[in-house]
Each structure stands twice: as C-alpha cells, then as structure tokens.
C-alpha cells in the first residue's frame, strides 16, 4: 500500500463521503456534504495508472472491472457458440425428420455443418474483436484521463 495515499485530499474526501453515506443509511436524515473547492482542481495530479501500478484498492477496482468486462464478453460469445454447437446434435436427436430434410438439394446437417457454420464462426469472431477492442479503448480512456 502506498504510504502517501492516506494523506491524499481526494481520498480523504472520498472517505468522508462514504462515512456520511453510512450514517445516512443508519438514520435517514439529510446530510450536507461539504468539501473545499480546491480539491476538485487538484484531482488530476494523481493519474489512475499509478493507482494500478501501486496496487491501491482503487487500482484493483479498476483492474477487476476490466477483467470482468472482458470475461463477460468472452463468456457471452462462448455461450452463444455453445448453444449453436451443442444445440445442433440435440435438435437432430429430438427432431429426427431434420436429419433427412433437404435444403437446396443438400441434406440439412451437411449444409449446416459442411458450410454455413464457418461464416458464422468468422462473424462471431469479428463481433468479439470489435467489442473487446472497444472495451480496451474505454478502459484506456478512463485510466489515462488527465
């Protein structure tokens, strides 16, 4: 933990805010939140990348949010893929006529597994790459803001 973090003005303000909120939760009463005007001006002195470097609680929160966003995106694409890929054998199992039905002169399973599924993979990959890069850009904007 960074020794200086204890006496940083914005942190003190943050803690005061937290404490007041806690009190508010205990006995619901209006609280006036005050803080010296100067803090708002001095905030950018301490960039978030340094919070991450020094592994402060705040830095950890940002890192966890990035990892969670990316994981959620990954799991979303994976479950989409899982539904299609694990659903197809189930569909053929439960609805046997689908095994022999022909589309454009080709049996449906052959058309799906031998052809259509490949462009689908590429599309899903394209969607993922775009979303993942956007997540990273957003994170970089957030953290690098001065």
């Amino acid at each position: 933990m960074n020794p200086r973090s204890a006496d940083r003005p914005d942190r003190r303000a943050f803690e005061r805010l937290l404490a007041s909120e806690r009190r508010a939760a205990e006995r619901p009463r209006r609280q006036v939140v005050t803080s010296p005007r100067t803090i708002a001006v001095r905030r950018p002195r301490y960039p978030l990348t340094r919070e991450i470097d020094e592994q402060t609680k705040l830095g950890e929160v940002y890192m966890r949010s990035l990892v969670r966003t990316q994981l959620r995106l990954g799991l979303f694409v994976c479950s989409l893929l899982g539904c299609v890929v694990c659903g197809l054998p189930l569909l053929f199992l439960l609805v046997p006529p689908l095994r022999v039905v022909e589309v454009l002169g080709v049996p449906l399973p052959w058309l799906l597994l031998g052809g259509l599924i490949y462009p689908l993979f590429t599309l899903a990959g394209y969607f993922y790459v775009r979303s993942a890069e956007r997540n990273e850009r957003d994170f970089a904007d957030l953290v690098d803001r001065r």
Binding site: L73, G74, V77, C78, L81, V85, I117, Y118, F121, A124, G125, Y128, V129
Partner: peptide, 9 residues
C-alpha cells in the same frame, strides 16, 4: 475451426 473461436475469445 471452432477451437480457434474459443481460443480467440
């Protein structure tokens, strides 16, 4: 092929 999609993601 799909293995690469999982790998990508």
């Amino acid at each position: 092929t799909g293995g690469y999609l999982v790998l990508l993601v």
